[in-house]
Design a protein around this nucleic acid. Structure first.
Lengths: 344, 344
DNA sequence: TTGAAAGCGCTAACAG
DNA sequence: CTGTTAGCGCTTTCAA
């Protein structure tokens, strides 16, 4: 196991000083321009033939950089996240960065600890796809000067750049779709209010109801504690118990919708015959469902890409201000879970 | 953004030399035992109050370690892999390691390049979940002294430790299940023969057919080029074209099985009424399928854990020999896609 | 039992 | 344009 060549080896081979080699190989042309073309060429060749590869650990120790970024997500086994992760990777990898992916499971203390782990690792920046609406730890990290951007969710603090989806428009598309089908008693299973998505989607629902002149009692709302199927079941149950005349349930997320569908099946209520259901996110594998779910598609891969690009800009061009707010477009995907209400 | 305290700061605070601090804080007790208990205690306290955290970059530069491992998988968007990745993470993280996950997409040149990226990153070891049966690059890396273990698949070269599932037993369970249901014309969609899984599962199929005294013509085999739904469709089509009397299709993997199911639906052939289908892996979200797939469950999370443990042993206890071959148990999961053949 | 000194591989002043 | 020097934070001889 012979060790790999260093800058010194190249210096020896070319007869110039190590620092000259460093300069010749620096990707920043401002430094290279100070050297004679001839030396640069010689150094390049020597590096090539020796198979030189810079030692990032050493360079990093010197300039305190690691060319790694932390990626925080709730849980990679949630199919929503793999495409996002690949989007991130697709811009990071070509630029020489690697990502350290950590799963918070939406547990606050785990998030805190992982944040600590990432800082200790000296990551050059963080993409947080698991942020809470208020997140003091996060703001603290940002204040400490570590580039950070949130993905899918935003922190209300206002200092952290974010990339989110057009939640408002998504809810409006779903609502209008149901309304246009003829539904007039549309319930809402809202998401956890501790996430910006939960809060924004609920707000959008209230807003459009008001716009359409629908009274609050005709648009019952139950907020879930978290985004999962069990909560979807529970909330759907409560809605139907309180208000058996509901003909459609607009859910703040696909997993809640899947739970709602499950409950309907349990109770022998036909979907979409008796009750229509819509989701949000268009998670992969949704089309495996026996009944296709009408939902709002978000740009998963692109969201990953965009957040990574913004983070890189923050890391590498700290002079240029990075965009603070990026909102990606969404689109409605109509499948089988929505239909006109039974015309009783 | 005040920088974090170094070993020097502690030295100054306690009045001892930096090297003494290093020794006092060394987790290896052999080194600490040389120091007086009093000094160790003082250093510990100072480290605590200053909030000292060792700088891995610096330590790594010195001892050439990074406390990071590379994890190669085909594609994180394949739901089979997230549980594996979390299994790996669950043992790595508590021991202070992070994992760098890369997706090969089963493209050889991508694999080569990523392997290069990982080496350049100086990972302490590699878990390869995307290995080919013959993989010179891999053997080369292993020979270079970088700890490496393969996961799910094995390299035939024989020098690389592996953690795989009991492919043979899995195929036998599926076959017996079909046979016991009464099937006598069982076809096989085999996996790509460039992966050990494809090869082993096919071998097991041939073996058990022979055991049951089934002639080769009564057990048609078509090998897929890769593990995906399109190939499953194609292969199932060929099987039914050549041999319309087949009553069951045993697939080397779930995705092939999903493809086969799709083809049956296309042709209006009822499953399990006319043709039964089985898969392999028990991928998450399989239960979303309109028709539950009978399959062989592999221990995904545990496989991740086991491979990580073995890798850590190779890294940290290079003296103790790591287990070369680990075969995890599998179990049959019976769902709706298998039933007795129509008794025509 | 502790200190001194060297060096891992690289970059960044500062000279010249 | 290029060489010299110093040092990032840590570990590890070698002395004392």
């Amino acid at each position: 196991m012979k060790k790999r060549p260093t800058i010194k080896d190249i210096a020896r081979a070319t007869g110039v000083h190590a620092s000259t080699v460093s300069r010749a190989l620096d990707p920043d042309s401002k430094k290279r321009n100070l050297l004679s073309a001839e030396v640069i060429e010689r150094v390049r060749e020597a590096a090539e033939t020796l198979g030189y590869r810079p030692n990032r650990q050493a360079a990093g120790l010197r300039i305190s950089r690691t060319w790694s970024v932390g990626v925080m997500i709730p849980d990679i086994t949630n199919t929503l996240f793999p495409p996002i992760v690949r989007g991130i990777e697709s811009v990071l990898e070509p630029r020489g960065y690697t990502s350290i992916i950590v799963n918070t499971d939406n547990i606050a203390e785990r998030e805190t600890r992982l944040l600590f782990v990432l800082r200790e690792r000296g990551v050059d920046g963080i993409i947080n796809g698991a942020a809470q609406r208020t997140d003091p730890k996060m703001a603290q990290v940002a204040a400490a000067g570590i580039p950070i951007v949130t993905l899918n969710r935003k922190v209300e603090d206002g200092t952290i750049p974010y990339v989110i989806n057009d939640e408002r428009q998504g809810i409006r598309l779903a609502f209008r779709h149901l309304y246009d089908l003829g539904h007039r008693r549309i319930a809402n299973i809202a998401g956890a209010q501790s996430y910006s998505t939960g809060q924004m989607r609920l707000e959008a629902f209230r807003e459009i109801c008001a716009e359409y002149g629908i009274a609050e009692k005709d648009a019952p709302i139950v907020a879930a504690d978290s985004y999962n199927e069990a909560e979807g079941q529970r909330c759907a149950g409560r809605i139907l118990d309180d208000d058996p005349d509901v003909t459609a349930i607009l859910c703040a997320n696909d997993r809640l919708a899947i739970g709602a569908l499950k409950l309907l099946r349990t109770r022998g209520i036909d979907c979409p015959g008796q009750v229509s259901v819509t989701g949000f996110n268009d998670m992969p594998f949704l089309d495996f469902l026996p009944l296709g779910l009408t939902t709002v598609r978000i740009k998963q891969f692109e969201a990953g890409q965009t957040s990574a690009r913004i983070l890189l800009q923050m890391i590498e061009e700290s002079d240029r201000a990075a965009p603070m707010q990026t909102v990606l477009p969404v689109e409605l995907v109509v499948r089988e879970s929505s239909a006109p209400p039974r015309s009783t």
